[in-house]
């Protein structure tokens, strides 16, 4: 495991500074070290290490159930965790959730979690607690005109896509340093996905985002960097395009690209308990793309 991480870091850094001259100079905005999460008796995250570079979109990828949502919840303090979460130069792990958010995190949860009993306007008003929020409201309304039109409507009566826009708009009212977005396209019709992705790429230009996304195409469109989780650990880190170029990597870590269903693949692996084989694959994969790039 150590081996891979060093390797991945080694080639991320040149990639970041070389490929993107404008954004690569600064230190990472978020640095996670040895993050562990237990839920009941289940040990879900086994010591994650990763970083999120400023002004870039980092995709957090992996199969269903590897702990992506858990990672976001732990970063927010909504789940108890062990380990270090260094955000903007400060270890925020002892802070309660609301402090972390006040410190510059914003969150768009999986399944939207808008307040269904409140109106659209009230949902947004709840989020307007920062000095900058007033100035950001027109931007949110421009981005999602639907929200302005339906401001008196109960959020519970919105369609899935509209609720997603509300959840995004709510987060964008916060002048956050880091946006945590969990599966923004989950359960949406393809045509709505296009709309949401367009709005997302517009809204997240120049901001720092950690994005959980199952839909690889969406991740590809939005993200520049990728962190891939497997079995509660970081299996691969690097540039998004490098990962996408590697079919073996995609197949082994994300279960895409072959006919075999992901679930079956995953089960075989865990049954063998081959904790070492995958990191090696990951390392191989990254070396390959390094050569290619």
């Amino acid at each position: 495991m150590m081996e891979v991480r060093e390797d991945a870091v080694a080639h991320t850094a040149p990639g970041a500074s070389g490929g993107d001259a404008s954004g690569g100079a600064a230190a990472p905005l978020l640095r996670v070290k040895d993050l562990h999460v237990h839920r009941g008796e289940a040990h879900i995250l086994h010591g994650l290490d990763f970083e999120v570079a400023p002004n870039r979109v980092t995709a957090l990828l992996g199969r269903n159930g590897v702990g992506k949502t858990t990672t976001l919840l732990a970063l927010l303090g909504l789940l108890p965790s062990k380990g270090q979460i260094e955000f903007d130069g400060e270890d925020i792990s002892p802070q309660p959730t609301h402090r972390r958010v006040q410190g510059g995190l914003a969150y768009v949860p999986e399944d939207r979690e808008v307040f269904t009993q409140l109106t659209v306007e009230e949902n947004l008003r709840l989020a307007m607690q920062w000095p900058e929020s007033e100035g950001r409201l027109p931007m949110v309304h421009d981005l999602f005109p639907e929200l302005k039109k339906r401001s008196a409507q109960k959020a519970g009566s919105l369609s899935g896509g509209q609720q997603q826009m509300l959840a995004l708009g709510r987060a964008l009212l916060h002048p956050a340093k880091l946006l945590l977005i969990d599966e923004p396209t989950k359960g949406l019709a393809p045509i709505i996905i296009t709309e949401v992705v367009a709005a997302l790429s517009q809204a997240t230009a120049d901001s720092t985002v950690l994005l959980v996304e199952q839909n690889l195409r969406v991740a590809e469109e939005l993200a520049t960097d990728a962190v891939v989780l497997d079995e509660g650990q970081v299996a691969w880190r690097g540039r998004m395009d490098a990962m996408l170029a590697d079919a073996d990597l995609k197949q082994s870590l994300l279960g895409v690209g072959r006919a075999r269903p992901a679930g079956e693949d995953g089960r075989t692996r865990s049954a063998e308990g081959d904790g070492r084989a995958r990191p090696d694959e990951g390392a191989d994969g990254s070396e390959d793309t390094e050569g290619g790039a």
Binding site: R39, N64, G65, G67
Partner: peptide
């Protein structure tokens, strides 16, 4: 999370 559900079942 689906992982925990699977585990407990």
């Amino acid at each position: 999370m689906s992982a925990t559900t699977a585990e407990s079942s």
